[in-house]
Nucleic acid binder design. Sequence first.
DNA 1: CCGAAAAGAAAGAAAATCTTTGTCGTGAGC
DNA 2: GCTCACGACAAAGATTTTCTTTCTTTTCGG
Lengths: 301, 301
Amino acid sequence: MRDLTRLKSLQALEASARHGSFVGAAAELDVTPPAVGQLVRSLEDWVGYPLFRRRRSGAERLTPVDEAEDALNDIAEGLDRLETGLRKLRGRKARSVVVVTASQALVANWLLARLDDFSTNYPTIDVRLDVSDRVIDLAQGEADIGIRCGLGAWKGVKSTFLMSEEIIAVCHNRLLKADREVTAGWIVEQTLIHDGTPHPGGNFPTWAEWLAKSGANQVPAERGLKINSTAAVIQAAVAARGVALVRKALVAQELDSGRLVHLLPDVRWPVKWAYYIVAAPKALRRYEVAAFHDWLASRPR
Amino acid sequence: MRDLTRLKSLQALEASARHGSFVGAAAELDVTPPAVGQLVRSLEDWVGYPLFRRRRSGAERLTPVDEAEDALNDIAEGLDRLETGLRKLRGRKARSVVVVTASQALVANWLLARLDDFSTNYPTIDVRLDVSDRVIDLAQGEADIGIRCGLGAWKGVKSTFLMSEEIIAVCHNRLLKADREVTAGWIVEQTLIHDGTPHPGGNFPTWAEWLAKSGANQVPAERGLKINSTAAVIQAAVAARGVALVRKALVAQELDSGRLVHLLPDVRWPVKWAYYIVAAPKALRRYEVAAFHDWLASRPR
DNA sequence: CCGAAAAGAAAGAAAATCTTTGTCGTGAGC
DNA sequence: GCTCACGACAAAGATTTTCTTTCTTTTCGG
């Protein structure tokens, strides 16, 4: 065992040989192609001769040299066995639990619709949702991992960008009139739903600001429905109580179903707040937390 | 292959299980025991349960838990296969050459006597000696690796401390009289061999300085044999031409054989110059260079 | 000739691995 | 009962490996 070294390079070599390219190997190993190339070239330096014949085009870019073919069988077998061993180690724990925290709005409107996919991919990991609109202290272990909306620079946790956000105007399709075009003027006449939750540094617009940008001639009246819960704002819109300014990500499902309608889609208002996956470094050492993190990070939005 | 991770930890786990201790595994893997412990504990975090039962004393400190026994077989087999594969990769190159540079004095008096051990351990690596008293540019590839005597802070190369040095007075045993005790006064009366090679910053003593430290009452005459080659100084001493101040490491063999005698051994003069193994980082990526380096670094002096 | 695809070089960033230092908990020996 | 030896462990920092990004180069194919 003393002489076993460059394990990562062996892994990169074997994957590259199987794929016939560094790009293919990189996709499998979830790294960039230059990383794979460097690992293989490092091993070539070590052994003192090229391990692949290179071609600059064609489907098969890398062909193992004859000298390496026999060794590749051993390496592949060895990696298989290691993977089997690691799987057995993991499999000995029947089930594990990952505690996930997110706001009410995000859970209800975004995360719940996606959790089935996680459970399908990881049947032995149970997800426990901790729904809270306050900031859960992940560094203290109150939860394992979470999704937060904000500027991203939280202390003591690792933040991975998930998706950006913009503010849009929406209303229930029931409020639309077939003989009345949706204009800024029309919107001003509706009951406007105001989201009163704090979002420091996020440059979220008020109704006045948004309407000014949309070209409205009138200033909105100081009436309307004021709610200090993002989730409830969305519920009010869904309940046809009026027109709401909401975060686009949180109403994606309602827009897809047609229940809510995106008004004046040409009016864009990107905000500085975005969604991040957040977890304490200590928690990420656990397989189930890392698995949830990686699953989230690699999913379409 | 996508799910194979923590390769180093698997290696540490397997070695620890075999040795029943982190200390044993560390010796085999040539790292410190806390390094092994961290790797194993990291894997335990990952899988979610302890992999060893720990005891705080006794010969067998670590016992694999029952759940891990089966997996350990796979892991051991996998590592064996990887090692076989790597050995085959290395074995495909019939012979390799490492170009070693060192000064005439060190080659003649220290390195030549030890090279047989390297060749015994590494029969497929040829050593080519580049003997030179000038500084070979390793970063430019003039040689692969070398041993230098100096302060150790050379640019562009990696320096690994090999051994320290001190200056001692020696003469041929033939010059000693049975009825005359060796004193500083006696030394002053002999032909003193001066080494004129430059050694900036090394605090090498002149004869005057050395004798002053030895308690001599007389200042040495300004005569003597002056030679500007360290190797030749030693040769002169071996040829009984006089008493020489020499670097102890370079005359170790002559002292062992009794041909040269260490005079006034209580007089110590350690110097700031020491011996370092030096190599360019690029060269160290090659197996044969790394092998020579590691063999040198782990040998008794 | 141009564009696409991917290997390669170089520089820098991030993560993994390793070292050092000191603490703690057992047995064994006195 | 006390002391000592041994080694696992924690914490902090250093070093090395791995990875990313950006740009260049080289072939084919259209």
